[in-house]
């Protein structure tokens, strides 16, 4: 598309806003998850849906998590939105992927956000590491959202212990699919960026843009 707009600024923006923004988003996710844990929300939810055939755990946790985030987001003056609509292109019928949580800095732009993809994980039985990569990580790599972005966040809701096992499952699933995910830097722990022990990173090349995207993998312990 022709770009008719000339920039409103000159020079190179150099304030520490991008890293602060990322920290703020991670902090809010951590804070919101802590709130849910304190309220025992996830465990109660799991119990209430135990016998249901069609469970809605992931989306229900996400919606509640965003509610908690929205109570606190004024602290950093950034904005979170839950479950953006699953849009379908009017003529081509191509589906846009649903983004679980969007931290938005430009509402008018289809691309002005930091995406968070949430996935359920388990420390025992079917750990869902494969689904985490196939239906989460790959959405970033294939540009179903975060097209051309430098960062994205994967958020693992760990619903059963042992926590480490769930994380190992993710690590193994990523290793197994490293060609598919165009992995450039493998799964490794991030230290000191925010006050949370369960943050990891991977770096990939996005399929169509060729740009590098760093995925931050944040795991929320809802099992302890």
């Amino acid at each position: 598309m022709a770009n008719y707009k000339q920039g409103h600024y000159k020079g190179k923006p150099t304030f520490s806003i991008p890293s602060a923004y990322l920290k703020a988003a991670l902090n809010l996710l951590i804070l919101g998850s802590d709130q849910l844990r304190q309220k025992n929300f996830v465990k109660q939810l799991c119990r209430s849906q135990k016998n249901r055939k069609k469970k809605t755990l992931e989306n229900t946790i996400t919606i509640e998590l965003v509610n908690e985030i929205q109570k606190e987001q004024e602290t950093y003056k950034i904005r979170a939105e839950p479950l953006s609509l699953n849009l379908v292109h009017p003529l081509t019928n191509i589906k846009y992927s649903q983004i679980d949580i969007k931290f938005t800095w430009d509402n008018y732009s289809p691309n002005g956000y930091l995406a968070v993809e949430a996935k359920l994980l388990f420390g025992e039985g079917k750990r869902h590491g494969g689904l985490y990569v196939e239906e989460g990580v790959l959405d970033f790599i294939e540009g179903r959202y975060s097209y051309g972005h430098s960062h994205g966040i994967m958020l693992g809701y760990i619903l059963s212990k042992p926590i480490d096992e769930a994380i190992v499952a993710v690590k193994k699933a990523l290793e197994k699919r490293k060609a598919k995910t165009n992995e450039k830097i493998p799964f490794n722990k991030v230290g000191g960026f925010v006050a949370h022990s369960l943050i990891f990173e991977t770096v990939h090349i996005q399929r169509y843009t060729g740009t590098e995207i760093m995925l931050l993998h944040l795991f929320a312990d809802f099992a302890s």
Partner: peptide, 15 residues
């Protein structure tokens, strides 16, 4: 808001 947008559109990928 504009300042934040300008920075986020210009982020260079480093944390």
């Amino acid at each position: 808001d504009e300042i934040i947008r300008e920075h986020m559109e210009n982020r260079d990928g480093k944390l």
